[in-house]
Amino acid sequence: MSLVVVAAATVGLVVSKRRARERADQAKRDRLIEATDTMSGPEFEQWFARILVASGFRNVTVCGGSGDRGADVLAVAPDGRRVVAQCKRQSPSNRVGSAAIQRFAGTCRDIHGGEICILVTNSFFTAGDGIEIARQLNITLIDRNALEVWAWTGSRAT
């Protein structure tokens, strides 16, 4: 009987260590912005959700997909405000334009009740009207450079 207990404890310890190692390996991969370049859209949403969790956000939920009405990730910020994020996984040379920013602006607060609205891309935003619209509507734009800093440090670059 005691041999069974020892064996079960040993298996539990091995499994626990393996899971911890897998989590550490995933965290290391999550800091590499280049990894996002080969991800699908849903994989990028999951990746960004892990960044939020690692940064202290709570109740992080990935809800992207058809019919998401512009919200890919919902969360609660460390200060308690509701976060709505739209994720745009692109090739690094394909920039997110004004139309995507305008669509998100139309749903973030009114449809999803966002207090913090974030449009995040592994690429960059086109210069011009979209960036000004985001500024006027208090939508946070996170481009590749800011996202890389966030992934490495656990806090959003300003």
Results as ranks from 00 to 15, higher is better:
A49M: 07
G56D: 01
G80W: 11
D79N: 13
V53P: 00
F44K: 00
A85T: 15
A54W: 03
V83L: 15
V60S: 00
L52H: 02
R58Q: 07
R89T: 01
F44C: 04
A49Q: 03
E43C: 03
E43H: 04
I51N: 02
G64Q: 09
V53C: 01
V83N: 06
R58P: 00
R69T: 02
Q46I: 15
A75L: 14
Q46R: 14
E45P: 02
C63G: 06
G70V: 11
D68C: 14
E43I: 06
L52T: 01
R69F: 14
F44L: 14
V53W: 00
Q46D: 15
E45F: 11
E43Y: 09
G70P: 03
G80N: 04
D68E: 12
R50G: 07
R82N: 12
G80D: 09
K88R: 14
V73R: 04
G65N: 05
V60I: 03
R89G: 03
A85K: 04
V60A: 05
R81G: 08
G56F: 09
F48Y: 15
R58W: 04
R82I: 08
A54M: 05
L52N: 02
A71K: 06
L74R: 10
V60R: 01
A49V: 09
Q86T: 02
F57E: 01
V84Y: 03
V84R: 02
A49E: 05
F48I: 07
R50W: 11
A85Y: 12
V83C: 09
S66T: 09
A71F: 13
G67Q: 04
V53H: 00
A54H: 02
V60Y: 03
G80Y: 09
C87W: 11
R82Y: 14
R69C: 12
C87I: 15
G65H: 05
V60E: 00
R58T: 13
C63Q: 09
A85Q: 07
V62R: 04
Q90N: 06
V76F: 07
L74G: 04
A85R: 04
N59V: 00
G64S: 13
T61D: 02
F48M: 09
V73N: 06
G64N: 12
K88D: 14
G67H: 06
E43F: 11
F48S: 03
A75N: 03
G64D: 10
R58E: 11
I51P: 03
Q90G: 00
E43S: 04
T61V: 14
K88Y: 12
R58K: 14
G64P: 04
F44H: 01
P78E: 12
